[in-house]
Nucleic acid binder design. Structure first.
Ligand SMILES: [Mn+2]
Ligand SMILES: [Mn+2]
Ligand SMILES: [Zn+2]
Ligand SMILES: [Zn+2]
Lengths: 153, 153
DNA sequence: AATAAAAATGTAATCATTACAATTTTTATT
DNA sequence: AATAAAAATTGTAATGATTACATTTTTATT
């Protein structure tokens, strides 16, 4: 696996932010960041661990958790609690929602502007974070299911 | 603690539903249901356990989990994944959102119509469940914080 | 009362996450 | 370059929520 494209703007912005916060750009941290920037969509800590283990076998899970916590702390990453007892991490911190397919397990991004929701009812409240998620079956899985049906009957 | 007001419409509708599904209205199940209908807002399995333990000391946690699972299965209760590694249960299954105060830990209900959101982008997807939650500090906690500030300085 | 089915229990196992002490690496200072 | 201090990383053990499962208790049916 080749490292995160250095031209990846999200990655480079993130490293800048780390510098700003006086957090060292250690190899391990950059690997975790890289993993979040690459194809992996909303990975769990364990998925990051498995993914990086081939490349960096000595990387510990504790370091992954430590890194994720610091990334969350400085606002470069946000956590998703869509499934019970499984925290997922999202490098995209801009306002958006999610769809979790209960068949294939994938988490899709959903473009939604959440900023304006519930303004009235929550006036007087200090809102730090907005999350919207849907659960169901994605298009692809629905099509597959129908295909299988046709074959079976 | 007196049992759930039998006139509580949500409670009685729930027992009807249980009957319809041929699930026995055992004492233990009704206690869990009662707990969900009463003041407790979005309790965890453990909070239900602690709450009922005084009254029914022999009630086991496994039974609480079993009951919650059956209630979720027949759609009488829904799960909330607002905090990591802590599933909360909500007897109110109608469309609404939540606000989790990071100071006092309370989960507030937020009236929001979610049905219409992301219709376009998720066309072709089968949506089973919609969840919206906010995190931040509630009004009361904000006021308290300011009060304390005044006292301290 | 006998029997079968359903419900409930307690204990042990699992899984994600955290705590923490020990070790290694990096950085700053001499 | 040698040394000391600070930061990062590691491995192991602990925690906490949830589940698995075998055993016991309760309930309904004959
Ligand atoms: Mn996302
Ligand atoms: Mn609610
Ligand atoms: Zn799918
Ligand atoms: Zn509060």
């Amino acid at each position: 696996m080749i490292g995160c494209d250095p031209m990846n703007s999200r990655y480079s912005r993130a490293t800048q932010q780390l510098k700003k916060h006086n957090i060292r750009l250690s190899n391990r941290r950059l690997k975790v960041l890289e993993c979040l920037c690459n194809k992996l969509d909303h990975p769990t800590a364990d998925q990051i661990f498995v993914n990086l283990h081939k490349e960096v076998p000595s990387l510990s899970k504790t370091t992954i958790y430590n890194t994720l916590h610091t990334l969350v702390e400085i606002g470069l990453v946000r956590t998703l609690n869509i499934e019970a007892n499984k925290t997922r991490y999202d490098i995209i911190t801009e306002d958006h929602g999610h769809f979790g397919c209960q068949t294939c397990g994938r988490i899709f991004n959903v473009n939604i502007e959440l900023e304006s929701l519930a303004k009235g009812e929550l006036s007087g409240f200090n809102i730090w974070e907005r999350n919207l998620y849907f659960k169901g079956i994605c298009q692809k899985c629905l099509l597959n299911k129908n295909k299988n049906r046709e074959v079976v009957y």
